[in-house]
Design a protein around this nucleic acid. Structure first.
Lengths: 228, 228
DNA sequence: CCCCTTTGTCGTCGAACTGACGATAAACGC
DNA sequence: GCGTTTATCGTCAGTTCGACGACAAAGGGG
């Protein structure tokens, strides 16, 4: 082993949620150099005896104060350009997390503040390191995954209406979907959602049926984004 | 930087091709411990000043004796379970490569032999380290990508017939496709393939039109695998 | 209490695509 | 010429999709 180049390995998290009509990402403001004062993805070093998924879960719970079970977490990709971090050779394994909004008291742990920022209002290069590219890759992955998986429901609370789910799609994709066709598609795709049996009360308009996530892991056929 | 746990970082390659009716993977027989004598994915350590994609390309050319331009290379995922390598803490970034068969004189560089093995005839656990899982992930990724990208053509020579392309699909997916519907689909999807203008000669049966890869990067609509 | 607004849900229609399969075209060997 | 082989074109019914009409079920204001 000795004699081989030593690397530092980190995990970085692209944590996405839908809130207030925006697809938003959890960012922390760096309290120390490099990039002091800049926004960055939450993350940290991997322990020498720690598995990569464990490190991602640990950072996620540390940064959001949430237990895992809610939401979705998957590996996004690994970034390791030689001088991406001025402190030395750091390779980072990026993860994508999708969470419902109910989340996120966002405790600033190590003297750094954290907040949700709408992804559309971030300019490339505004983030520390190569986090702008990582974020862009994560957002694109999320947009694509809504097409062929039921993951949109992970942005919703445990029980939700078809309209709430549609709102997730419209917010993430930034396009308008026909409510009637969307309703047909969602309720007609086996395993996408399951009816709870109850309805909303006290909202505007006609009460809506409540649903829970279904058991399907893939959407057949997929829900395609409207033509550009 | 100092004070953070030191890791070794490697790249490992899942190099796939279609030959003799089998989806096959390029494997090397290890000449040194650990797992001496076992089959393993080709790969090696990343240089301290080397970018990750560069390391993958370097290993690919070293291992196949081919220049890059032919074929497709993409990052597959990163594997870093604490004791996946008995020599120490090694994190590996796995890459997926798809190549035409015309390739691969397969020079055994460092006292290790290399060969193409059909992926179906490998039992899980037969490979060194966690390479069985990495290979399984790579094969599944390749199978999925044939659905919604024109990447099947990277398994073919620069000019190919519709039947050759269909053979790739049938071999990778292990299922039978209707020649007439396949022909309609391939020639009817914009950007999938482009006619060269010439035809095959001297083969059995009616000569077939020759095609080249099209400019499309995504298939709309996708070519779906037959229902299981 | 009736109308109007809001929102959810069901139906209808034509276009596009798919799967199954018949039919024809163009080469070869005998 | 004739059968064999493979490529390519057509047909037809079933499924799905986008656009949109219609109705259902709540609340609010007069």
């Amino acid at each position: 082993m000795t004699g081989y180049p030593p690397f530092a390995v980190t995990v970085d998290l692209v944590v996405l949620t839908v809130r207030a009509g925006d697809l938003s990402v959890l960012l922390v403001r760096r309290g120390i150099p490099p990039y002091e004062g800049c926004w960055a993805l939450p993350g940290g070093f991997v322990g020498i005896d720690e598995d990569l998924p464990d490190a991602a879960v640990r950072e996620l719970t540390e940064e959001t104060g949430l237990a895992e079970p809610a939401g979705h977490l998957e590996q996004l990709g690994t970034y390791g350009k030689p001088h991406r971090d001025p402190r030395g050779r750091v390779v980072t394994v990026a993860w994508l997390a999708l969470l419902p909004d109910l989340a996120a008291p966002v405790a600033g742990t190590d003297a750094a503040s954290a907040d949700w920022l709408p992804v559309d209002r971030l300019t490339p290069g505004q983030l520390a390191f190569d986090h702008g590219r990582i974020l862009a890759d994560g957002v694109e992955r999320a947009r694509a995954k809504l097409e062929y998986t039921p993951l949109a429901a992970t942005f919703c609370p445990p029980e939700f209406t078809v309209a709430q789910l549609r709102d997730v799609y419209e917010t993430v994709w930034g396009s308008h979907l026909d409510p009637r066709n969307f309703h047909r598609k969602v309720t007609g795709t086996p395993g996408f959602v399951e009816p709870v049996g109850r309805s909303t009360e006290g909202e505007r308009g006609r009460p809506a049926q409540l649903f829970r996530r279904g058991s399907a892991t893939l959407l057949h056929p997929p829900m395609l984004r409207p033509a550009r």
